[in-house]
Design a protein around this nucleic acid. Structure first.
Lengths: 246, 246
DNA sequence: GAGTGGTAAGAGGTTAGACCACTAGACTCG
DNA sequence: CGAGTCTAGTGGTCTAACCTCTTACCACTC
Protein backbone atom coordinates (compact mmCIF):
# COMPACT_ATOMS: atom_id res chain seq x y z
CA UNK A 1 0.00 0.00 0.00
CA UNK A 2 2.70 2.48 0.87
CA UNK A 3 5.22 1.94 -1.88
CA UNK A 4 8.11 4.34 -2.27
CA UNK A 5 7.11 7.20 -4.55
CA UNK A 6 8.30 7.56 -8.13
CA UNK A 7 10.83 9.83 -9.75
CA UNK A 8 9.39 12.80 -11.58
CA UNK A 9 8.40 16.15 -10.18
CA UNK A 10 8.36 17.58 -6.69
CA UNK A 11 8.69 15.00 -3.99
CA UNK A 12 5.76 16.23 -1.94
CA UNK A 13 3.62 16.59 -5.06
CA UNK A 14 4.31 12.95 -5.81
CA UNK A 15 3.31 12.02 -2.28
CA UNK A 16 0.11 14.02 -2.66
CA UNK A 17 -0.62 12.20 -5.92
CA UNK A 18 -0.08 8.83 -4.30
CA UNK A 19 -2.35 9.58 -1.36
CA UNK A 20 -5.00 10.92 -3.74
CA UNK A 21 -4.74 7.67 -5.66
CA UNK A 22 -5.33 5.66 -2.49
CA UNK A 23 -8.30 7.88 -1.70
CA UNK A 24 -9.79 7.40 -5.16
CA UNK A 25 -9.36 3.64 -4.94
CA UNK A 26 -10.89 3.77 -1.47
CA UNK A 27 -7.99 1.89 0.02
CA UNK A 28 -8.12 4.85 2.37
CA UNK A 29 -11.64 5.47 3.60
CA UNK A 30 -13.21 8.33 5.48
CA UNK A 31 -12.18 8.23 9.11
CA UNK A 32 -9.10 6.06 8.55
CA UNK A 33 -5.97 7.04 10.35
CA UNK A 34 -2.77 7.28 8.34
CA UNK A 35 0.40 5.74 9.73
CA UNK A 36 2.40 7.97 12.09
CA UNK A 37 4.44 10.54 10.21
CA UNK A 38 7.78 8.99 11.07
CA UNK A 39 6.67 5.53 10.03
CA UNK A 40 4.89 6.72 6.89
CA UNK A 41 7.94 8.72 5.84
CA UNK A 42 10.03 5.57 6.12
CA UNK A 43 7.49 3.48 4.19
CA UNK A 44 7.45 6.04 1.38
CA UNK A 45 11.20 6.42 1.45
CA UNK A 46 11.09 10.18 2.08
CA UNK A 47 11.99 12.50 4.92
CA UNK A 48 9.47 13.70 7.45
CA UNK A 49 9.48 17.36 6.35
CA UNK A 50 8.67 16.36 2.77
CA UNK A 51 5.85 14.14 3.96
CA UNK A 52 4.55 16.94 6.17
CA UNK A 53 4.46 19.32 3.22
CA UNK A 54 2.35 16.81 1.33
CA UNK A 55 0.02 16.42 4.31
CA UNK A 56 -0.31 20.21 4.51
CA UNK A 57 -1.35 20.41 0.89
CA UNK A 58 -3.94 17.66 1.33
CA UNK A 59 -5.16 19.36 4.49
CA UNK A 60 -5.59 22.63 2.59
CA UNK A 61 -7.71 20.76 0.04
CA UNK A 62 -9.85 19.39 2.83
CA UNK A 63 -8.92 15.76 2.18
CA UNK A 64 -7.07 15.19 5.47
CA UNK A 65 -7.43 16.50 8.97
CA UNK A 66 -4.50 16.58 11.37
CA UNK A 67 -5.06 16.15 15.08
CA UNK A 68 -2.20 17.03 17.37
CA UNK A 69 -1.22 14.10 19.54
CA UNK A 70 -3.57 11.73 17.74
CA UNK A 71 -2.67 11.37 14.09
CA UNK A 72 -3.66 12.25 10.54
CA UNK A 73 -7.13 11.22 9.44
CA UNK A 74 -9.04 11.00 6.18
CA UNK A 75 -11.99 13.36 6.39
CA UNK A 76 -15.25 13.63 4.52
CA UNK A 77 -15.12 15.02 1.03
CA UNK A 78 -15.79 18.75 1.24
CA UNK A 79 -19.15 18.27 -0.50
CA UNK A 80 -20.65 17.21 2.81
CA UNK A 81 -20.37 20.45 4.66
CA UNK A 82 -20.09 21.01 8.33
CA UNK A 83 -17.67 23.86 8.31
CA UNK A 84 -19.38 26.01 10.83
CA UNK A 85 -16.16 27.89 11.39
CA UNK A 86 -16.10 29.13 7.80
CA UNK A 87 -19.60 30.54 8.03
CA UNK A 88 -18.46 34.00 8.87
CA UNK A 89 -16.09 34.33 5.96
CA UNK A 90 -18.66 32.77 3.67
CA UNK A 91 -21.19 35.41 4.60
CA UNK A 92 -18.96 38.21 3.46
CA UNK A 93 -18.48 36.56 0.10
CA UNK A 94 -22.13 35.64 -0.19
CA UNK A 95 -23.10 39.31 -0.31
CA UNK A 96 -20.74 39.74 -3.23
CA UNK A 97 -22.02 36.66 -4.99
CA UNK A 98 -25.67 37.62 -4.84
CA UNK A 99 -24.89 41.19 -5.82
CA UNK A 100 -23.11 39.84 -8.87
CA UNK A 101 -25.96 37.49 -9.64
CA UNK A 102 -28.26 40.48 -9.84
CA UNK A 103 -25.79 42.43 -11.94
CA UNK A 104 -25.43 39.57 -14.41
CA UNK A 105 -28.78 37.85 -14.46
CA UNK A 106 -31.03 40.87 -14.83
CA UNK A 107 -29.43 42.01 -18.10
CA UNK A 108 -29.21 38.36 -19.15
CA UNK A 109 -32.97 37.99 -18.80
CA UNK A 110 -33.53 41.28 -20.61
CA UNK A 111 -31.34 40.36 -23.56
CA UNK A 112 -32.62 36.81 -23.68
CA UNK A 113 -36.19 38.07 -23.92
CA UNK A 114 -35.22 40.00 -27.04
CA UNK A 115 -33.62 37.18 -28.92
CA UNK A 116 -34.34 33.77 -27.44
CA UNK A 117 -35.20 31.01 -29.92
CA UNK A 118 -38.19 28.74 -29.59
CA UNK A 119 -35.87 25.78 -29.13
CA UNK A 120 -34.02 27.41 -26.28
CA UNK A 121 -37.32 28.38 -24.72
CA UNK A 122 -38.53 24.80 -24.88
CA UNK A 123 -35.31 23.64 -23.28
CA UNK A 124 -35.70 26.05 -20.39
CA UNK A 125 -39.24 24.87 -19.88
CA UNK A 126 -38.18 21.24 -19.78
CA UNK A 127 -35.39 22.07 -17.34
CA UNK A 128 -37.98 23.53 -15.00
CA UNK A 129 -40.13 20.43 -15.40
CA UNK A 130 -37.15 18.22 -14.57
CA UNK A 131 -36.46 20.36 -11.53
CA UNK A 132 -40.03 19.95 -10.42
CA UNK A 133 -39.91 16.20 -10.96
CA UNK A 134 -36.63 15.90 -9.08
CA UNK A 135 -38.26 17.54 -6.08
CA UNK A 136 -41.05 14.99 -6.01
CA UNK A 137 -38.75 11.98 -5.84
CA UNK A 138 -38.60 10.02 -2.63
CA UNK A 139 -35.03 10.96 -1.85
CA UNK A 140 -34.35 14.31 -3.54
CA UNK A 141 -30.74 14.45 -4.68
CA UNK A 142 -29.42 17.76 -3.50
CA UNK A 143 -26.68 17.95 -6.10
CA UNK A 144 -29.08 17.19 -8.93
CA UNK A 145 -31.47 19.90 -7.76
CA UNK A 146 -28.67 22.44 -7.53
CA UNK A 147 -27.43 21.51 -11.00
CA UNK A 148 -30.86 21.80 -12.56
CA UNK A 149 -31.43 25.17 -10.92
CA UNK A 150 -28.07 26.37 -12.22
CA UNK A 151 -28.86 24.95 -15.66
CA UNK A 152 -31.96 27.12 -15.89
CA UNK A 153 -30.06 30.31 -15.15
CA UNK A 154 -27.16 29.32 -17.37
CA UNK A 155 -29.60 28.63 -20.16
CA UNK A 156 -30.86 32.18 -19.92
CA UNK A 157 -27.31 33.52 -19.99
CA UNK A 158 -26.65 31.44 -23.09
CA UNK A 159 -29.80 32.71 -24.75
CA UNK A 160 -28.69 36.26 -24.05
CA UNK A 161 -26.09 35.69 -26.72
CA UNK A 162 -23.15 37.34 -24.99
CA UNK A 163 -20.26 34.94 -24.56
CA UNK A 164 -18.57 36.99 -21.88
CA UNK A 165 -21.76 37.17 -19.86
CA UNK A 166 -22.30 33.46 -20.32
CA UNK A 167 -18.84 32.46 -19.12
CA UNK A 168 -18.97 34.83 -16.19
CA UNK A 169 -22.31 33.42 -15.12
CA UNK A 170 -20.82 29.95 -15.47
CA UNK A 171 -17.99 30.69 -13.08
CA UNK A 172 -20.32 32.42 -10.66
CA UNK A 173 -22.64 29.44 -10.45
CA UNK A 174 -19.66 27.10 -10.10
CA UNK A 175 -18.64 29.04 -7.03
CA UNK A 176 -22.16 28.97 -5.68
CA UNK A 177 -22.37 25.21 -6.17
CA UNK A 178 -18.97 24.50 -4.66
CA UNK A 179 -19.93 26.62 -1.67
CA UNK A 180 -23.14 24.60 -1.45
CA UNK A 181 -24.95 27.83 -1.05
CA UNK A 182 -28.18 26.98 -2.67
CA UNK A 183 -31.41 27.89 -1.07
CA UNK A 184 -33.53 25.20 -2.66
CA UNK A 185 -33.81 22.97 0.37
CA UNK A 186 -35.09 25.67 2.67
CA UNK A 187 -38.61 24.78 3.84
CA UNK A 188 -41.21 26.64 1.83
CA UNK A 189 -38.59 27.87 -0.57
CA UNK A 190 -39.47 25.36 -3.26
CA UNK A 191 -42.86 26.78 -4.13
CA UNK A 192 -41.62 30.34 -4.07
CA UNK A 193 -38.66 29.54 -6.25
CA UNK A 194 -40.90 27.66 -8.64
CA UNK A 195 -43.25 30.61 -9.05
CA UNK A 196 -40.35 32.99 -9.58
CA UNK A 197 -38.82 30.74 -12.21
CA UNK A 198 -42.15 30.56 -14.01
CA UNK A 199 -42.43 34.34 -13.99
CA UNK A 200 -39.00 34.65 -15.60
CA UNK A 201 -40.01 32.06 -18.16
CA UNK A 202 -43.21 33.97 -18.84
CA UNK A 203 -41.22 37.13 -19.48
CA UNK A 204 -39.05 35.26 -21.95
CA UNK A 205 -42.02 33.59 -23.63
CA UNK A 206 -43.77 36.93 -24.08
CA UNK A 207 -40.51 38.33 -25.42
CA UNK A 208 -40.96 41.11 -22.87
CA UNK A 209 -37.49 42.32 -21.79
CA UNK A 210 -38.73 44.56 -19.00
CA UNK A 211 -40.90 41.83 -17.52
CA UNK A 212 -38.14 39.22 -17.72
CA UNK A 213 -35.66 41.60 -16.12
CA UNK A 214 -38.06 42.43 -13.28
CA UNK A 215 -38.75 38.76 -12.65
CA UNK A 216 -35.03 37.93 -12.64
CA UNK A 217 -34.30 40.72 -10.19
CA UNK A 218 -37.09 39.60 -7.92
CA UNK A 219 -35.84 36.01 -8.03
CA UNK A 220 -32.25 36.84 -7.14
CA UNK A 221 -33.33 39.09 -4.31
CA UNK A 222 -35.71 36.50 -2.97
CA UNK A 223 -32.99 33.82 -3.11
CA UNK A 224 -30.62 36.15 -1.33
CA UNK A 225 -33.10 36.83 1.44
CA UNK A 226 -33.68 33.11 1.88
CA UNK A 227 -29.95 32.37 1.96
CA UNK A 228 -29.23 34.97 4.60
CA UNK A 229 -32.22 33.96 6.67
CA UNK A 230 -31.02 30.38 6.71
CA UNK A 231 -27.51 31.46 7.55
CA UNK A 232 -28.68 33.53 10.50
CA UNK A 233 -30.71 30.54 11.66
CA UNK A 234 -27.70 28.25 11.47
CA UNK A 235 -25.54 30.64 13.38
CA UNK A 236 -28.15 30.94 16.09
CA UNK A 237 -28.31 27.15 16.33
CA UNK A 238 -24.52 26.90 16.42
CA UNK A 239 -24.37 29.45 19.23
CA UNK A 240 -26.99 27.71 21.31
CA UNK A 241 -25.34 24.30 20.88
CA UNK A 242 -22.13 25.86 22.11
CA UNK A 243 -23.95 27.03 25.20
CA UNK A 244 -25.42 23.57 25.73
CA UNK A 245 -21.99 22.03 25.78
CA UNK A 246 -20.98 24.13 28.73
CA UNK B 1 4.98 44.11 6.74
CA UNK B 2 6.49 40.85 7.88
CA UNK B 3 5.97 41.05 11.61
CA UNK B 4 6.39 37.91 13.69
CA UNK B 5 3.17 35.95 13.81
CA UNK B 6 0.89 35.68 16.81
CA UNK B 7 0.35 32.94 19.34
CA UNK B 8 -2.72 30.79 18.76
CA UNK B 9 -2.94 27.73 16.58
CA UNK B 10 -0.49 25.96 14.32
CA UNK B 11 2.48 28.00 13.33
CA UNK B 12 2.07 27.40 9.61
CA UNK B 13 -1.68 28.08 9.84
CA UNK B 14 -0.89 31.43 11.38
CA UNK B 15 1.55 32.14 8.57
CA UNK B 16 -1.13 31.20 6.02
CA UNK B 17 -3.56 33.57 7.72
CA UNK B 18 -1.07 36.41 7.66
CA UNK B 19 -0.28 35.94 3.97
CA UNK B 20 -4.00 35.77 3.20
CA UNK B 21 -4.41 39.06 5.03
CA UNK B 22 -1.71 40.67 2.91
CA UNK B 23 -3.40 39.33 -0.21
CA UNK B 24 -6.79 40.70 0.83
CA UNK B 25 -5.32 44.10 1.59
CA UNK B 26 -3.51 43.97 -1.75
CA UNK B 27 -0.19 44.65 -0.12
CA UNK B 28 0.71 41.55 -2.10
CA UNK B 29 -0.55 41.83 -5.65
CA UNK B 30 -0.88 39.32 -8.45
CA UNK B 31 2.53 38.60 -9.92
CA UNK B 32 4.49 39.85 -6.92
CA UNK B 33 7.40 37.76 -5.77
CA UNK B 34 7.61 36.88 -2.10
CA UNK B 35 10.92 37.24 -0.28
CA UNK B 36 13.25 34.23 -0.52
CA UNK B 37 12.23 31.47 1.87
CA UNK B 38 15.26 31.89 4.11
CA UNK B 39 14.76 35.63 4.40
CA UNK B 40 11.01 35.43 4.83
CA UNK B 41 11.39 32.80 7.56
CA UNK B 42 13.68 35.13 9.43
CA UNK B 43 11.35 38.11 8.98
CA UNK B 44 8.45 36.08 10.36
CA UNK B 45 10.57 34.62 13.13
CA UNK B 46 9.89 31.01 12.13
CA UNK B 47 11.93 28.18 10.71
CA UNK B 48 12.12 27.41 7.04
CA UNK B 49 10.20 24.11 7.17
CA UNK B 50 7.28 25.78 8.95
CA UNK B 51 7.20 28.52 6.35
CA UNK B 52 7.41 25.95 3.58
CA UNK B 53 4.40 24.11 4.99
CA UNK B 54 2.44 27.36 4.88
CA UNK B 55 3.53 27.98 1.30
CA UNK B 56 2.44 24.44 0.38
CA UNK B 57 -1.02 25.06 1.79
CA UNK B 58 -1.39 28.33 -0.10
CA UNK B 59 -0.11 26.65 -3.24
CA UNK B 60 -2.74 23.94 -2.86
CA UNK B 61 -5.39 26.68 -2.69
CA UNK B 62 -4.07 28.18 -5.89
CA UNK B 63 -3.03 31.47 -4.33
CA UNK B 64 0.73 31.01 -4.77
CA UNK B 65 2.85 29.38 -7.42
CA UNK B 66 6.36 28.15 -6.64
CA UNK B 67 9.04 28.22 -9.32
CA UNK B 68 12.19 26.32 -8.62
CA UNK B 69 15.25 28.53 -8.88
CA UNK B 70 13.16 31.68 -9.23
CA UNK B 71 10.97 32.22 -6.22
CA UNK B 72 7.43 32.14 -4.90
CA UNK B 73 4.85 34.25 -6.70
CA UNK B 74 1.32 35.46 -6.08
CA UNK B 75 -1.10 34.18 -8.72
CA UNK B 76 -4.65 35.07 -9.69
CA UNK B 77 -7.52 33.84 -7.55
CA UNK B 78 -8.91 30.56 -8.93
CA UNK B 79 -12.22 32.07 -10.03
CA UNK B 80 -10.46 34.70 -12.11
CA UNK B 81 -8.24 32.02 -13.63
CA UNK B 82 -11.31 29.94 -14.51
CA UNK B 83 -12.96 32.88 -16.20
CA UNK B 84 -9.88 33.69 -18.21
CA UNK B 85 -9.49 30.07 -19.27
CA UNK B 86 -13.14 29.82 -20.29
CA UNK B 87 -12.95 33.04 -22.28
CA UNK B 88 -9.76 31.94 -23.96
CA UNK B 89 -11.71 29.22 -25.73
CA UNK B 90 -14.86 31.19 -26.48
CA UNK B 91 -14.58 33.99 -28.94
CA UNK B 92 -15.86 37.26 -27.69
CA UNK B 93 -16.66 40.11 -29.98
CA UNK B 94 -16.56 43.81 -29.38
CA UNK B 95 -20.32 44.13 -28.98
CA UNK B 96 -20.20 41.63 -26.13
CA UNK B 97 -17.33 43.39 -24.44
CA UNK B 98 -18.92 46.83 -24.47
CA UNK B 99 -22.24 45.42 -23.35
CA UNK B 100 -20.47 43.79 -20.43
CA UNK B 101 -18.58 46.96 -19.62
CA UNK B 102 -21.90 48.68 -19.14
CA UNK B 103 -23.26 45.79 -17.09
CA UNK B 104 -20.25 45.80 -14.80
CA UNK B 105 -19.10 49.38 -14.64
CA UNK B 106 -22.41 51.06 -13.99
CA UNK B 107 -23.06 49.12 -10.75
CA UNK B 108 -19.37 49.47 -9.91
CA UNK B 109 -19.62 53.24 -10.06
CA UNK B 110 -22.85 53.18 -8.06
CA UNK B 111 -21.41 51.02 -5.28
CA UNK B 112 -18.10 52.86 -5.28
CA UNK B 113 -19.90 56.16 -4.76
CA UNK B 114 -21.45 54.71 -1.62
CA UNK B 115 -18.29 53.50 0.04
CA UNK B 116 -15.15 54.87 -1.59
CA UNK B 117 -12.42 56.06 0.78
CA UNK B 118 -10.70 59.41 0.50
CA UNK B 119 -7.44 57.63 -0.25
CA UNK B 120 -8.94 55.67 -3.12
CA UNK B 121 -10.53 58.86 -4.43
CA UNK B 122 -7.19 60.63 -4.39
CA UNK B 123 -5.61 57.72 -6.22
CA UNK B 124 -8.25 57.85 -8.95
CA UNK B 125 -7.69 61.57 -9.32
CA UNK B 126 -3.96 61.15 -9.68
CA UNK B 127 -4.47 58.38 -12.23
CA UNK B 128 -6.49 60.79 -14.35
CA UNK B 129 -3.77 63.43 -14.00
CA UNK B 130 -1.16 60.91 -15.10
CA UNK B 131 -3.33 60.02 -18.05
CA UNK B 132 -3.58 63.66 -18.99
CA UNK B 133 0.15 64.15 -18.65
CA UNK B 134 0.88 61.06 -20.73
CA UNK B 135 -1.18 62.54 -23.54
CA UNK B 136 0.88 65.72 -23.58
CA UNK B 137 4.20 63.96 -24.01
CA UNK B 138 5.99 64.30 -27.30
CA UNK B 139 5.65 60.64 -28.21
CA UNK B 140 2.52 59.35 -26.47
CA UNK B 141 3.03 55.71 -25.52
CA UNK B 142 -0.08 53.89 -26.59
CA UNK B 143 0.34 51.04 -24.11
CA UNK B 144 0.85 53.43 -21.22
CA UNK B 145 -2.28 55.37 -22.12
CA UNK B 146 -4.33 52.22 -22.34
CA UNK B 147 -3.00 50.97 -19.01
CA UNK B 148 -3.77 54.24 -17.25
CA UNK B 149 -7.27 54.31 -18.68
CA UNK B 150 -7.81 50.72 -17.51
CA UNK B 151 -6.33 51.57 -14.10
CA UNK B 152 -8.99 54.25 -13.60
CA UNK B 153 -11.84 51.86 -14.27
CA UNK B 154 -10.25 49.04 -12.29
CA UNK B 155 -9.77 51.41 -9.37
CA UNK B 156 -13.50 52.06 -9.36
CA UNK B 157 -14.22 48.33 -9.45
CA UNK B 158 -11.88 47.87 -6.50
CA UNK B 159 -13.55 50.68 -4.59
CA UNK B 160 -16.91 49.03 -5.19
CA UNK B 161 -15.74 46.40 -2.72
CA UNK B 162 -17.02 43.32 -4.55
CA UNK B 163 -14.23 40.87 -5.26
CA UNK B 164 -16.04 39.06 -8.06
CA UNK B 165 -16.92 42.27 -9.79
CA UNK B 166 -13.32 43.37 -9.49
CA UNK B 167 -11.93 40.15 -10.90
CA UNK B 168 -14.36 40.09 -13.78
CA UNK B 169 -13.57 43.70 -14.63
CA UNK B 170 -9.90 42.79 -14.52
CA UNK B 171 -10.32 40.08 -17.13
CA UNK B 172 -12.56 42.27 -19.25
CA UNK B 173 -10.04 45.08 -19.48
CA UNK B 174 -7.21 42.62 -20.12
CA UNK B 175 -9.09 41.36 -23.14
CA UNK B 176 -9.79 44.88 -24.30
CA UNK B 177 -6.10 45.74 -23.98
CA UNK B 178 -4.92 42.62 -25.76
CA UNK B 179 -7.33 43.37 -28.58
CA UNK B 180 -5.89 46.87 -28.73
CA UNK B 181 -9.43 48.08 -28.70
CA UNK B 182 -9.03 51.35 -27.00
CA UNK B 183 -10.64 54.42 -28.35
CA UNK B 184 -8.21 56.88 -26.82
CA UNK B 185 -6.27 57.63 -29.95
CA UNK B 186 -9.28 58.53 -32.02
CA UNK B 187 -9.09 62.19 -33.05
CA UNK B 188 -11.19 64.36 -30.77
CA UNK B 189 -11.80 61.44 -28.45
CA UNK B 190 -9.28 62.59 -25.87
CA UNK B 191 -11.19 65.64 -24.71
CA UNK B 192 -14.50 63.82 -24.65
CA UNK B 193 -13.09 60.92 -22.70
CA UNK B 194 -11.45 63.33 -20.27
CA UNK B 195 -14.71 65.13 -19.58
CA UNK B 196 -16.54 61.83 -19.08
CA UNK B 197 -13.89 60.58 -16.67
CA UNK B 198 -14.15 63.78 -14.69
CA UNK B 199 -17.92 63.43 -14.50
CA UNK B 200 -17.56 59.93 -13.06
CA UNK B 201 -14.99 61.22 -10.60
CA UNK B 202 -17.35 64.03 -9.62
CA UNK B 203 -20.09 61.52 -8.93
CA UNK B 204 -17.74 59.55 -6.69
CA UNK B 205 -16.47 62.66 -4.95
CA UNK B 206 -20.01 63.80 -4.22
CA UNK B 207 -20.79 60.30 -3.02
CA UNK B 208 -23.76 60.41 -5.37
CA UNK B 209 -24.44 56.85 -6.58
CA UNK B 210 -27.03 57.82 -9.17
CA UNK B 211 -24.81 60.50 -10.66
CA UNK B 212 -21.77 58.21 -10.76
CA UNK B 213 -23.80 55.44 -12.36
CA UNK B 214 -25.21 57.79 -15.02
CA UNK B 215 -21.75 59.14 -15.79
CA UNK B 216 -20.32 55.63 -16.07
CA UNK B 217 -23.10 54.54 -18.40
CA UNK B 218 -22.62 57.61 -20.57
CA UNK B 219 -18.89 56.97 -20.72
CA UNK B 220 -19.15 53.35 -21.78
CA UNK B 221 -21.75 54.18 -24.43
CA UNK B 222 -19.68 57.02 -25.76
CA UNK B 223 -16.58 54.81 -25.91
CA UNK B 224 -18.60 52.16 -27.69
CA UNK B 225 -19.89 54.62 -30.26
CA UNK B 226 -16.37 55.87 -30.87
CA UNK B 227 -14.99 52.36 -31.26
CA UNK B 228 -17.64 51.31 -33.74
CA UNK B 229 -17.40 54.55 -35.65
CA UNK B 230 -13.69 54.06 -36.04
CA UNK B 231 -14.22 50.48 -37.04
CA UNK B 232 -16.72 51.47 -39.73
CA UNK B 233 -14.27 54.08 -40.91
CA UNK B 234 -11.47 51.58 -41.20
CA UNK B 235 -13.63 49.14 -43.08
CA UNK B 236 -14.65 51.84 -45.52
CA UNK B 237 -11.02 52.77 -46.05
CA UNK B 238 -10.05 49.15 -46.52
CA UNK B 239 -12.82 48.69 -49.04
CA UNK B 240 -11.85 51.75 -51.03
CA UNK B 241 -8.18 50.80 -51.06
CA UNK B 242 -9.22 47.45 -52.38
CA UNK B 243 -11.05 49.21 -55.17
CA UNK B 244 -8.03 51.37 -55.87
CA UNK B 245 -5.85 48.35 -56.35
CA UNK B 246 -8.03 47.02 -59.09
C1' DG C 1 -15.86 -0.07 43.71
C1' DA C 2 -15.67 4.64 42.07
C1' DG C 3 -13.18 8.57 41.59
C1' DT C 4 -8.67 11.00 41.38
C1' DG C 5 -4.18 12.02 40.03
C1' DG C 6 0.30 11.05 38.05
C1' DT C 7 2.98 9.14 34.49
C1' DA C 8 4.75 7.44 30.22
C1' DA C 9 4.18 6.32 25.37
C1' DG C 10 3.34 8.00 21.07
C1' DA C 11 1.39 11.28 18.18
C1' DG C 12 2.15 15.83 15.70
C1' DG C 13 4.88 20.64 16.04
C1' DT C 14 9.14 22.99 15.42
C1' DT C 15 13.85 23.90 14.81
C1' DA C 16 18.74 23.98 13.02
C1' DG C 17 22.03 23.39 9.58
C1' DA C 18 23.70 21.26 5.81
C1' DC C 19 23.70 19.99 0.98
C1' DC C 20 21.41 19.29 -3.80
C1' DA C 21 19.15 21.10 -8.16
C1' DC C 22 17.45 24.52 -10.98
C1' DT C 23 17.32 29.29 -13.22
C1' DA C 24 18.86 33.49 -14.98
C1' DG C 25 22.08 36.64 -16.00
C1' DA C 26 26.88 37.95 -16.27
C1' DC C 27 30.97 36.70 -18.20
C1' DT C 28 34.25 34.83 -21.30
C1' DC C 29 35.90 33.02 -25.45
C1' DG C 30 35.74 32.04 -30.29
C1' DC D 1 28.52 39.52 -32.15
C1' DG D 2 27.12 35.02 -30.81
C1' DA D 3 27.55 30.80 -28.09
C1' DG D 4 29.10 28.45 -24.36
C1' DT D 5 30.42 28.72 -19.37
C1' DC D 6 30.29 30.30 -14.76
C1' DT D 7 28.19 31.94 -10.71
C1' DA D 8 25.01 33.75 -7.41
C1' DG D 9 20.67 33.08 -5.66
C1' DT D 10 16.59 30.48 -5.50
C1' DG D 11 13.67 26.50 -4.11
C1' DG D 12 14.16 21.16 -2.84
C1' DT D 13 15.50 17.71 0.42
C1' DC D 14 17.48 15.50 4.26
C1' DT D 15 18.97 14.43 9.13
C1' DA D 16 18.39 14.52 13.92
C1' DA D 17 17.07 16.49 17.63
C1' DC D 18 13.74 18.64 20.97
C1' DC D 19 8.93 20.48 22.33
C1' DT D 20 3.97 19.95 23.14
C1' DC D 21 -0.27 17.64 23.21
C1' DT D 22 -3.42 13.49 23.76
C1' DT D 23 -4.37 9.26 25.46
C1' DA D 24 -4.33 5.27 28.22
C1' DC D 25 -2.89 3.05 32.05
C1' DC D 26 -2.14 2.44 36.74
C1' DA D 27 -1.52 3.36 41.41
C1' DC D 28 -3.62 5.80 44.96
C1' DT D 29 -7.42 7.52 47.74
C1' DC D 30 -12.00 7.57 49.63
Amino acid sequence: MWQPVGQRGNLSDRIVAQVELLLREERLKVGDRLPPEREMAQLLGVSRPSLREAIRALQAQGRLVVKHGQGVFVCEPPSQKDLRAALHRAEVDLHDLFAMREVLEVPAARWAAEKISDDALAELRSTLEELDAAFDEEAPDFERLANLDAAFHLGIARAAGNHFLQQTTNVLHDILLSGMETTLLIPGRREKSRREHLRILAGLTERDPALAARAARAHVRSARRAAFARMAEEQKRAASSLLDEQ
